[in-house]
Simulated scan of single mutants.
Amino acid sequence: MPLDPEAQRIIDRTPAEDPNASGPLDVVAMREGFQQMWKMPDPLPEVGSVVNTTIPGPGGDLPVRIYTPEGEGPFPAFVWFHGGGWTIGGLDENEFSCRAVCAAADTIVMSVDYRLAPENPFPAAADDAYAAVAWVAEHGAEIGADPAPSPGGVGGRPPTGKLPRIATGGESAGGNLAAVAALKARDLGGPEIALQVLVSPVLGHPDDGRASYSEFSEGYFLSKSSMDWFFVTYPTGPDDLDNPYLLPLRSKDLTGVAPALILGAEYDVLRDEGEEYGARLAEAGVRTEVVRCDGLIHAFFGPLATELSAAEKARDRAAAALRAAFGTDGR
């Protein structure tokens, strides 16, 4: 499908990378440039409440932003991780999408401000992601969530015939962390996760040879060179690249992982690895839905949510999948 005209306008206004630039990129400049490029949308979707607080994390207090829907709880919980190559970004650029999903899925959304590299390299972000999910399982009542399984059944999972009420989700590096949290939950004895919503997730390496990295290496908002830099910044060394908690596609066994909804942009270097991960999950017997969002570019779900009309369909799909996974379609 042709590039969405709204996506083309975003690309046209995005500063081109300097092919003659030399030396390492500066993380402070990258963060400042990202903040200057993005503005908080107005108006924002209405929800019951938005609260900034902290929860205990492996490296100290972990900032989180909790979105609660209108109405009477307790509610299921959707733990969300922002993108930014594990290096840049924060809670604000996901404000619109977190509110929209909170209202549409009738779920609490806990957006997590995990530790960033290079100050906190791998596995800091992965550890924070799993800790946040585990905290919700143990302390959900403190934020109005009821993560305990409720009667029901989706696709034969879980075997007890009850539905867990925790889901993970994220975009780009946040999608990576949502997938990693689901892997860790399987490997470390829980908590049981109802669904992982992976939006343009980072699951493999830029040099793995996937076609989307060649087709969209530059000129489509997220470049291969940016991804190369993130992979210099986040891992501590080459050995980390073999760790499935950094790159889930390195996992030799995906059986028993939570069901997944994978949403990918057509014009994105990360497109093929998301679709490959979906195929791997399905081969392992995991209920998986993979959706290619035609005409769209990277960051369509969060930072560019209000500028890409077609992204609304993706948010609606995520909300519907969450309702089905939580068993709250008729709530």
Rank of each mutant, 00 (worst) to 15 (best):
L3R: 07
D4N: 11
A7S: 12
I10K: 07
I11N: 03
I11S: 04
T14P: 12
E17Y: 13
E17F: 11
S22Q: 13
V28K: 12
R31N: 10
E32A: 14
D42K: 13
D42N: 15
G48I: 12
V51D: 15
I55Q: 05
I55V: 09
G57A: 07
G57E: 09
G59R: 07
G60D: 05
T68Q: 02
P69N: 03
G71A: 02
F75T: 09
F78K: 00
H82Y: 12
G84C: 10
G85C: 01
W86L: 14
I88K: 00
G89M: 02
G90P: 06
L91P: 02
E93Q: 06
N94F: 06
F96R: 13
V101S: 06
C102M: 08
M110A: 00
S111N: 06
V112M: 00
D113M: 01
L116G: 12
L116M: 07
A125F: 01
D127N: 13
A129Q: 01
H139S: 08
D146L: 15
D146V: 14
D146A: 15
S150A: 13
G153K: 11
P158K: 15
P158W: 10
P159A: 11
P164C: 04
R165H: 14
R165T: 14
R165A: 14
R165K: 08
A167N: 01
T168A: 12
G175W: 05
L177A: 03
A181M: 00
R186S: 09
G190F: 11
Q196S: 09
L198C: 01
L198N: 04
S200M: 06
V202R: 10
H205W: 10
A211P: 00
S214Y: 05
E215I: 09
E215V: 02
G219E: 09
Y220K: 02
F221E: 13
S223K: 02
S226I: 05
D228A: 03
W229Q: 08
Y234L: 08
Y234K: 11
P235R: 08
P238C: 13
Y245K: 14
L246D: 10
K252D: 13
L254P: 00
G256D: 01
V257C: 02
P259Y: 05
I262D: 06
G264K: 04
G264D: 13
G264P: 06
A265C: 00
A265Q: 04
E266M: 02
E273A: 01
E275V: 12
Y277C: 10
A279D: 10
R280A: 12
A282R: 07
A282F: 07
E283V: 05
E283S: 07
G285N: 05
V286M: 08
V286Y: 09
E289C: 02
V291I: 14
V291N: 04
R292G: 11
D294V: 04
G295K: 11
G295P: 00
H298N: 04
G302L: 07
G302T: 14
L304I: 03
A305W: 05
A310P: 09
A314R: 05
R315G: 08
R317T: 15
A318I: 06
A318F: 07
A319Y: 08
A320Y: 02
L322Q: 10
R323C: 10
A324K: 12
A324R: 09
A324G: 15
F326V: 15
T328R: 01
